[in-house]
Deep mutational scan, measured.
Amino acid sequence: MPSETPQAEVGPTGCPHRSGPHSAKGSLEKGSPEDKEAKEPLWIRPDAPSRCTWQLGRPASESPHHHTAPAKSPKILPDILKKIGDTPMVRINKIGKKFGLKCELLAKCEFFNAGGSVKDRISLRMIEDAERDGTLKPGDTIIEPTSGNTGIGLALAAAVRGYRCIIVMPEKMSSEKVDVLRALGAEIVRTPTNARFDSPESHVGVAWRLKNEIPNSHILDQYRNASNPLAHYDTTADEILQQCDGKLDMLVASVGTGGTITGIARKLKEKCPGCRIIGVDPEGSILAEPEELNQTEQTTYEVEGIGYDFIPTVLDRTVVDKWFKSNDEEAFTFARMLIAQEGLLCGGSAGSTVAVAVKAAQELQEGQRCVVILPDSVRNYMTKFLSDRWMLQKGFLKEEDLTEKKPWWWHLRVQELGLSAPLTVLPTITCGHTIEILREKGFDQAPVVDEAGVILGMVTLGNMLSSLLAGKVQPSDQVGKVIYKQFKQIRLTDTLGRLSHILEMDHFALVV
């Protein structure tokens, strides 16, 4: 994948999101292997301009796509893939009243899908469409860049269908997702969380590099694949309309690839034109409109599966009536509230959605109805927002919020430890010299600072030695090549209790 991002070429006709291997024109390309080798690009942008032909009021008969309808489940399912879809609609009884809503608040519980998330729908649909058009064949390999849930859905379907599955996901995604993927037989590649989507090191860039190296491999490409919004247009939206008897006044959905909100909203605009569509985008993402909503100094966020630093091709923002931004604290607070007060075992993005819903639905009156999409299960986040310690460490809970008995030293300040200034190293000294210094002084790690004293990161003896043994660096290389740029900081005025929580999850903390 090139470091400079080429513009994806656009073909003359058809839909841009065809499933299957992508040609340089962004659509299915038939021909000899030699032709494909000559024409197939190194990668295709996940934010390529959409060429979708959908228009409100256009006859369904003019759609270029294969459409399906929700099917009634048999008493005995032939395999677990038949437990994807037909998820329950559940009334939220307490939270709406707590925040003064007059309307009825309903939750579409997508964590009841077989793999635990709304992404099971698009995973199965992308595979079925690729099999139907002859792209996927027995023994082929599926590769997908994902925040985890699409990966789980694909790995689940691949396990049943017999495909090899490789999932490329950023490091910030939970260990629970990784464990589930491994249990399903998927191979996992992790990428830096802070890598831009168009960087060769991003999950998108690495996935395309693997595709170019592995024979008979395919990126189904949830960011561009029409099967993504079509899955929701054909099934999720129809289920909502049936469950609500066609009567709903507002739908609120958090947005990642945009397939969920695009597919549902398009069908609702056709069948229930008075329904307002509300999009939820986390602070630090750029999906919301108008652009002024996205202006923030924050560039990272903890909530998973929603928000991006690019506009995915499948996201149709014209069908969203209003956007709201959400933050991590309210997302996790509301997710825990949904679990504790409503018994809905949902993930953090569901918290984002409901946090926005109780604001947006203030305009609705008694007798009206708001539906929220709860995308995934708490299963993926047992060591994250479900953990009091994690919430404390991230600053989303305060010590006084917890009532468990603490040891005698818990409320003492870090400054009472009488710490001395640490050994520091410059980023320009060599790895070999740094190892000598650390061994001589008896230290395992040291902060790396520039000549102005600005902290650049941390270097550890173990990481340097393993990097040297693996051949990633040489003793003569500058130590700046092996620094940890993500590390926890703590102030002298913070409590030892807070430091204790940090050290339970990290090997060190830097006192500043």
Results as ranks from 00 to 15, higher is better:
S117G: 08
T262I: 02
A195V: 13
I76S: 08
K25C: 13
R266Y: 07
G31L: 02
S63E: 02
T5V: 02
C275Y: 02
I167V: 04
F112V: 04
H232S: 09
N149C: 02
A69C: 11
K98W: 10
V206N: 04
V160P: 02
S199A: 02
C272N: 04
S3I: 04
K75D: 02
E62M: 11
H65P: 06
P41Q: 09
K137I: 10
T235Y: 12
G14D: 11
N228I: 02
S19W: 13
P21W: 11
K247R: 11
K267P: 04
P74N: 02
V255I: 02
P64R: 04
E9M: 02
R266C: 05
G100Y: 02
G246S: 08
E131R: 02
P138F: 10
P215A: 08
G96V: 02
V189F: 02
I219R: 07
E201S: 13
P138N: 10
L251T: 02
P229A: 06
I44E: 15
P145H: 04
I214F: 09
T191S: 06
N225I: 02
A155W: 05
I44L: 09
E144P: 06
C109R: 02
E239L: 02
V10S: 13
T68A: 13
V189A: 12
V204L: 13
R182C: 09
P21M: 11
E62T: 05
G85L: 02
V10A: 09
R51A: 02
C15Y: 10
P59V: 02
L136F: 08
S27C: 15
A159C: 06
I92Y: 14
C109N: 10
K271R: 11
C165I: 06
K172H: 02
P215I: 05
Y233S: 05
G153C: 05
A157C: 08
S217C: 05
R276N: 13
K94T: 13
A24M: 11
F99R: 02
T235D: 07
H203I: 02
K75I: 06
R18A: 14
S254L: 02
N216R: 06
L181W: 02
G139F: 11
W43P: 09
Y223P: 08
H65S: 05
S174L: 05
I76K: 14
K102C: 09
I167F: 06
P170L: 04
L124P: 14
D245G: 13
G148L: 04
A253I: 02
R266I: 10
T13M: 02
E37N: 09
K102N: 13
A8M: 02
P6A: 08
M250P: 02
A155K: 02
N228H: 07
G31Y: 02
T260Y: 02
T236G: 02
A38G: 11
L230H: 13
V10L: 12
I166T: 15
G263T: 08
P2L: 14
A38Q: 04
S27V: 12
K83T: 09
Q55A: 06
R132L: 07
R209Y: 09
T141E: 02
H17Y: 14
E270V: 11
G139R: 11
A24L: 11
F112S: 02
I142K: 02
Y163L: 05
P200V: 08
G116C: 13
D245T: 02
A107Y: 04
R224W: 02
S227V: 06
D238F: 09
N93C: 14
R58I: 10
